[in-house]
Amino acid sequence: MGCFGFLKMMMFVFNGVIFLAGAAILGVGIWVKVDSGSILGVLGKIDNAPPELGQVLNVGYLLIAIGVLLLVIGFLGCCGAVRESTCMLLLFFVIVLVVFIAEVAGAVVILVFRPLADELLTKLGKAAVESIKKDYGENADVTGLWNTTMTSLHCCGFYNSSDFVDSPYYEHHGSLYPPQCCAVTESACVQTAATITGCFPKIKKLFEENTVVIVGVALGIAALEICAMAVSMILYCRIKSKGD
């Protein structure tokens, strides 16, 4: 197998994986939009939530768009390499280049508008705490969502156990916190709940501890995109020269 054949094979395998990933993401996006009982529906019921939170309800459309984009990229890459189509390879190069530029622009925007993100998180935290105090222990959707989140992350409340004070659950259970906030037994819940980390601080700490991994993954994706563009151009030039 020559260099040209090897590049064709790598182009086919790489874009085949992208095509399958796009199909999976598209499926998840469709499921999110179809499932009315999903977490997104619960978030939409939170009272006094910041207007920006409503954008989360569009995540299904975002996943669908990403899935379709990956399907198109994977299809063009695979077929362009197998059929030696200069048109498909050129279109593949253009789309990946646009995605790469958009990612760079997005990273710059995130860095520049970081204070706005912090402000949004503050508003989100206030809305989450108000929702807990009003609905936890009374609204089945809100209660189930928080129970699942706290059990999965081993955390208590949004910020800490005090978020549950004056909630329906707190009042109906003799001023006790939820079982997820207890380190030992229910009888010791009030004394030990303060030692359980809140869900938001825990998620924030998780991101901070894995910053290097996140940056590494981002750089890896960027490197793969650059390599994909380079290979597509090499194949394009080689095929075009053969045609001439």
Rank of each mutant, 00 (worst) to 15 (best):
H154G: 07
C155D: 09
C155T: 05
C155Y: 06
C155R: 06
C156G: 06
C156V: 01
G157W: 00
F158W: 14
F158A: 14
F158T: 11
Y159S: 15
N160F: 07
N160W: 00
S161H: 10
S161I: 00
S161M: 06
S161D: 09
S162N: 15
S162V: 14
D163E: 05
D163G: 01
F164T: 04
F164Q: 08
F164Y: 14
F164N: 02
D166C: 06
D166Q: 15
S167N: 11
P168C: 14
P168W: 09
Y169C: 02
Y169W: 15
Y170A: 04
Y170W: 15
Y170V: 00
E171R: 14
E171Y: 04
E171K: 15
H173D: 01
H173L: 05
G174Y: 08
G174D: 10
L176R: 12
Y177K: 05
P178N: 13
P178K: 11
P179H: 12
C181W: 00
C181Q: 05
C181M: 03
A183D: 08
A183K: 13
A183Q: 13
V184K: 13
V184G: 00
T185E: 04
T185Q: 01
T185C: 02
T185F: 01
S187A: 11
S187Y: 01
S187V: 03
S187Q: 04
A188V: 03
A188C: 08
A188L: 13
A188R: 06
A188E: 14
C189Q: 06
C189P: 03
V190M: 07
T192A: 08
T192Y: 02
A193F: 00
A194C: 07
A194K: 11
T195L: 12
T195N: 11
I196P: 00
I196E: 09
T197V: 10
T197H: 04
T197C: 00
G198H: 05
G198T: 03
C199K: 01
C199G: 06
F200C: 01
F200R: 05
P201M: 11
P201D: 09
P201T: 02
